[in-house]
Amino acid sequence: MRKAMYALGRGLLFLTALLFAIVFLMPTVLTITNSFMSGTEIAANYGVVFSSLSNTTTYISDQVNLKFIPDQVSFSQYATALLKSPDYLLKFWNSVILVVPIVIFQVAVAAFAAYSFTCYRGKMKEALFFFYIILMLMPYQVTLVPNYLVAEWTHLLNTRWAIILPGIFAPFSVFLLTKFMRRIPVSLIEAAKLDGAGDWKIFTRICLPMCRSALYSIVILVFIDYWNMVEQPIVLLSDAEKQPLSVFLSQINSGEVGLAFAVATIYMVPTLLLFLHGEDYLVEGITYSGSVKG
């Protein structure tokens, strides 16, 4: 009886999980399948959603028609995005130009900062770390206005540095890496010191290899975070030609719905590849598992 109840419970749990999985996956699947629809079909299916934006256009269907299977598979949206309009490619490279330096330098800064918070002793250390935590807890919108003011003051407004510099010094990765580095046994570092290793050797030969999974996690999380940023470019980059592709995806209009599906599908490829590459480390890093070996 108990066994049957347990099986039933497991079954219900599985169904609930499946339901959630379907709900969460549906937008992604919809994006990918709809990117293969022609502009006419997209307009017929979703045109009414955008009818408020354009008063002159009349749409065939007066309700949204969520469809997963195209009437006729068409690559026209991809052809438009990749071949006919250099703007989208330019915006893609804008995203890359903004995100890659942020990820590299943020990880570097976080690594150094985390080592400092872990290995050095001082009165200000804890206070400074607490300040980092406070900063991390603040919503991004709170710091957006000071960011804007500082950028204007430093004449960096409407330049990529206005995005890259705050990104490099973001507190989240410092916090995560510090927490991870503190789990490295002190005895290990002391043993290295006894063996005559300096700080640079300890940092590069002990700390960084042991934090590899955490570094991977940080790379993936930071990449996803900044690859999808919308508010910062809108506020800090007034020049549309410098804005990343994520901004375009947030500003689609009725004529570009099909194009947005195709661009979104292309846009999710780098994230997906990065995630698949570091999937194991991401889980490991987040769960703090396997911190010390042997």
């Binding site: 990749l82 071949l83 006919k84 309009s85 250099p86 490619l89 330019l90 893609f92 490279w93 490829v269 780098p270 590849l273 990065l274 698949l276 590459h277």
Partner: peptide, 24 residues
């Protein structure tokens, strides 16, 4: 495999960008 896929993806995007004006 994923690394290769990423390299190919970026290479394609670069090539398309290079020729984008010509094609357009």
């Amino acid at each position: 495999w994923i690394k290769n896929a990423a390299i190919i993806f970026l290479a394609i995007m670069l090539v398309l960008t290079f020729f984008s004006n010509t094609i357009m």
